[in-house]
Every structure is written in C-alpha cells, then in structure tokens.
Computed example of a mutant assay.
Amino acid sequence: MSEAMFGLVGKDFVILAADQQAAFSIIRIKNDADKIWQIEDKLFACTGPPADTSNFCEYLDKNIKLHTLRTGLSLSTKACANYTRNELAAALRKGPYNVDLLVAGCDASGPALYFLDLYASSEKVNKGAHGYGAMFTLGLMDRYWKPDLTEAEAIDIIRMCIKELETRFIIDLGNYKCKIVDKNGVREIKLKA
C-alpha cells in the first residue's frame, strides 16, 4: 500500500499524521480522505483498503461508544487497543480486515501510542509508522525522538518525515492530516506554514 501514517509520543501528548489519498490499485480515488478517526477522546489512525478501514473503524466507534453508554465508564487507551486487537484476532479467523492501526490517547496513565497490524499483533510504542512511508520515516523518528519531546519539536519531526517522503518516495502522497491528543482532548493542526 502506498500510504504513510506515523506518530510520536511526546511529554504529555501524542501526535499522528497520515496522508490523505484514497486509492484503488493504481487509481487515486480522492485526495482529501481523513484516515485518523476520533473515537471519544482517542485517535485511531487506520491504513488499508478504504472499505476495510471505514467498516472496521465505524464498527470500533459504535462498540466503544456502546460500552461507555452501558457502563458509564470511558475505556482507557490501553483498553481500546486491547479491544481492537481482540476484534482483529476474531476477524482473522473468519473474514479478516486488511487494516493496520495506530491507537493514540492521553488518560490518567499518561500519553500512549499502540501499534497494531492486520495479524492482530499489538505493542505499546513511543513512535510508530505503517505503509510504505514507514520505510522512510522510522529512521528519522528514531534519530530525533526523546522522552521529553515538546509539541513544537514533535511537529518539526513530523514535517521532516513528510519532507523525506516528498524527496525520496516515488509516489506523491499529496496532503497530510495531523492531529494531536492530550489531556484537553483532540485537535487538528495545520502543517503548512
């Protein structure tokens, strides 16, 4: 998949970025897709075929909200990642979703980022990426990430990753959408100066 999705954990936030193109085979269907879903106060960045990502994220959205309505309790980031992993594992045995995800949130235990793939593996990470873009961005994030990363530094790293993709990747992925989740909730930021 010629997609790029990446994220970083900062001092008290998580930042995610994803390209905005939706494609089928070699055809670009649209270039304004939002691949970072907000479910309650968590972010789910999802890559894969547009039908699978849409169906799976809508399914997650409805079931996580149903849990909150039934219990009156909101799921933690870890609980959301575990629920998502269980759903991917169950689907793997009957009708798998071809999706890879980054699940981000900031709750009582602090900021957290989880890396999940279509085979239902899950891992808590400080930086993660999916798609072909991961080949170009993981090295930059390894080089510049640090535990006390500020928001401005994280945005600079995201811009470096996008610049690297624009320079080295053979396919033009177009525009990118970038969202941040922290204790105050979710917000979208503009990357163009």
Rank of each mutant, 00 (worst) to 15 (best):
L66K: 09
L101W: 02
T53H: 03
E40D: 15
R70P: 00
P50I: 09
T77P: 02
D34V: 03
V99L: 06
T68P: 01
L73G: 07
T53P: 04
N98Q: 14
R93E: 11
D34W: 05
D34L: 01
S74H: 07
R85W: 02
K94A: 01
F44C: 00
A33M: 08
C80Y: 01
A81I: 05
G105M: 06
A51D: 07
Y83C: 02
L102T: 05
L88C: 05
T47H: 04
A81D: 06
T71H: 03
C57H: 04
A90M: 12
L102H: 10
L75H: 01
T68K: 15
L92A: 12
I64S: 04
K94M: 06
L69C: 00
A45L: 01
H67F: 15
T53C: 11
E87I: 04
G105C: 08
A51H: 07
N55R: 09
D34F: 02
H67E: 10
Y97W: 15
P96A: 08
N86K: 14
N31Q: 10
D61C: 02
L102F: 07
L92D: 05
C46A: 15
N86G: 01
K78Q: 14
P96S: 10
I39E: 09
D61K: 13
G72C: 14
T53Q: 07
L60V: 11
W37Q: 12
E40S: 15
S74W: 00
L73M: 11
C80P: 04
D41F: 03
N31P: 03
I64M: 04
D32L: 11
Y97S: 10
V99C: 06
N98H: 14
N86R: 14
P49F: 08
A33H: 06
G48W: 10
D34K: 09
L101Q: 08
G72W: 12
Y83M: 12
K78R: 14
Y59T: 09
R93C: 03
D107F: 08
E58G: 02
C46Y: 03
A33K: 07
Y59I: 06
N63P: 00
N63F: 04
A79C: 05
K65L: 15
T84L: 03
D41N: 15
K35T: 02
D52Y: 04
